[in-house]
Amino acid sequence: MAKARVKAPKTAAAGELVTIKTLVNHKMESGRRKDGDGNLIPRKIINAFTATFGGEEVISAKFEPAISTNPYFQFSFTVPATGDLVMQWTDDDGSTVEQTKTITVA
């Protein structure tokens, strides 16, 4: 099962731009590789990533097979107030990996 790693600050000032780093353990099988017998290995990738903060969409991305194995994605956003950064990665098979990080504004 894919596992997500997220680096996010625990606190921020209101209106501060914070940078979030994410890394998910996933093969990102492109669907172009062949196995030992010459058969195409079916595509299986993480095809979508979304991040919301305090319920508001920050970013929603569509990933193609050209995204490397163990997809790394870094993004930045302005923190208005204390809230939860909710991130979700979606696999081709519909399964999802979620992670939430709370950022507190003093």
Binding site: L17, S30, F53, E56, V58, I59, A61, P65, A66, I67, S68, P71, Y72, F73, Q74, F75, S76, F77, T78, V79, P80
Partner: peptide, 11 residues
Amino acid sequence: LSDASGSTRIR
């Protein structure tokens, strides 16, 4: 809220 930037690793 986003600053419309991103970093990733590609093939």
